[in-house]
């Protein structure tokens, strides 16, 4: 006998749905209060942080303006800028900073890129190496550099000289100090670039570019570098700040850089160092503003999802 199976019905039975409301959810008024409370504490922490950073800066500015008794003025700034050594050392430090940033970019971008792309197992080693400047003081680094590069270089087991001691020439010393600065800036530069590369998923972007016919040079210059630009600029800014203020390497290598100059006038003068410190702050802010301006609207945060 055939089964009844699905039978026609004339009327549909009423179906009721139980739409329950979670009693544990805060109501609209409570949510609004919670939001205001959260915002209040955010502002409190922001203001405390701002005071922590701004009070010393304000004190420096105020001190730098009080060179003349009972008058607020720019005398200290005038004096500082009048000194020919200021411009000389400042320009030299800027040039060394630019050289360090360029050399670091050339070294670190391809290294971080290759490690992310092909050698992920080497990441821990690279991170360890880049953190070494935090545990090895600059004094050790500079003595190591002097000891290694102040002798004649010969091919091992022969008397054939490859090059003169680097410390005996100006160019050699600049090359040496730039290399030293690269080491000091490595933790900041590598981490900035590596984080930038993680955010944009460089592996997939590389493969996409390769499938469209791009070679390595095009991929690095047109795809990778523009997308880690913001990270690179952050690293460059930190490198700049380190190089301009660095004292140990410059002093021991005998380079007349801005760091030793600032240190020297700090020992003999009262107001000019404050003026120069404030100028350095302004320059850093200017650089940060430039980063915001250059990367504004389309930084790497807009990477592939």
């Amino acid at each position: 006998m055939a089964s009844k199976g699905l039978r026609k019905v004339v009327a549909m039975s009423d179906t009721s749905f139980d739409i329950s409301v979670d009693q544990g959810e805060p109501d609209k008024k409570t949510r609004s209060l919670l939001r205001i409370g959260g915002r209040f504490w955010s502002w409190v922490w922001f203001i405390l942080g701002a005071i922590y950073f701004l009070v010393p800066l304000f004190a420096t500015l105020r001190h730098s303006l009080r060179m003349e008794r009972d008058v607020l003025g720019f005398k200290a700034y005038e004096r500082a800028f009048e000194d020919p050594s200021f411009l000389e050392t400042f320009l030299l430090s800027n040039a060394l900073a630019v050289a360090t940033i360029l050399c670091s970019t050339l070294l670190i971008v391809p290294t971080a890129y290759w490690i992310r792309l092909r050698l992920p197992q080497a990441r821990r080693i690279a991170e360890f190496i880049t953190l070494l400047p935090f545990v090895i003081p600059a004094i050790i680094l500079v003595f190591g550099l002097i000891r290694t590069y102040s002798t004649h270089f010969t091919i091992p087991f022969t008397d054939i000289e490859l090059f003169q001691p680097l410390t005996t020439t100006k160019f050699g010393t600049y090359a040496l100090i730039t290399a030293g600065y690269m080491v000091l800036a490595m933790p900041y530069m590598y981490r900035s670039v590596d984080t930038g590369m993680r955010v944009v998923d460089i592996r997939t972007l590389t493969e996409a570019a390769q499938s469209l016919g791009a070679g390595w040079f095009t991929i690095i210059t047109q795809v990778i570098l523009p997308n880690v630009r913001s990270a690179l600029l952050s690293g460059a800014l930190l490198t700049f700040a380190i190089v301009v203020g660095e004292v140990t390497l410059a002093s021991f290598l005998g380079v007349d850089a801005f760091g030793p100059y600032l240190f020297l006038i700090g020992q003999h003068k009262a107001y000019e160092p404050a003026a120069l410190s404030f100028v350095t702050f302004l320059m850093t802010w200017f650089a940060m503003g430039m980063i915001q301006f250059v990367t504004g609207g389309q930084g790497q945060a807009t990477g592939a999802h």
């Binding site: 944009v200 493969e207 996409a208 570019a209 499938s211 469209l212 389309q298």
Partner: peptide
């Protein structure tokens, strides 16, 4: 890969974030 004339579409889109739609297509 860049010597084969093969087009590839990825799960994560893989569009170049620094380029506009037109620049991406023309790459």
């Amino acid at each position: 890969p860049n010597q084969r004339n093969v087009g590839m579409i990825f799960q994560a889109y893989a569009l170049f974030p620094n380029m506009t739609v037109a620049q991406n297509i023309g790459f």
